[in-house]
Amino acid sequence: AALEPVETHPLQSRWALWFFKNMKSQPWQCNLRLVTTFNTVEDFWALHTHIQLASKLSSGCDYSIFKDGIEPMWEDSRNKRGGRWLITLSKQQRHSDLDALWLETLLCLIGEAFDEYSEEVCGAVINIRAKGDKIAIWTREAENREAVTYIGRVYKERLGLSSKVVIGYQAHADTATKSSSLTKNKFVV
């Protein structure tokens, strides 16, 4: 008997998963690979449950999830005027919090959690680094204060961060010209 077609739940956007592995012998662009794209809830979970947990990646690796067509780099025209809400984690949090925070970030993206400002979202990146992992949501226009701060407030709430914790938004233009420790926050929530 023929199987009934399974109903799927389409997402607002098609998303692309990118993987970066730091191999110093190759140019940076060669280390960044598009893994796959998806545009349904079901395909998101199929992908998520079949790839390595972020906490198990080796140092120097990144996962990026961006709207299809946007490359996960400052230079992309959809990113270059934007910035990122940055979450920096302690070394200990890789084991206790990292995977849950990354999953929550992904659910915010694919579920369009930022209401009318979800259109401002370009994607999200997780950096696995020995000195401390980072998660960020990238938005397309750093000067759009209303949208950026709305996204920041919702994101902080969704991550379950204490009101005492402050997270910052950095414009890519500032990040690109300064070392990370010196990049000033354009907004905080």
Binding site: H9, Q12, W45, H48, T49, E104, G111, A113, D115
Partner: peptide
């Protein structure tokens, strides 16, 4: 129509898909 989903709805599909 904008397709938005809350977290509980999305999480509800996690193990259904994983078991397929």
């Amino acid at each position: 129509e904008k397709k938005s989903y809350d977290r509980e709805f999305l999480l509800g599909f996690q193990f259904i898909v994983a078991s397929m």
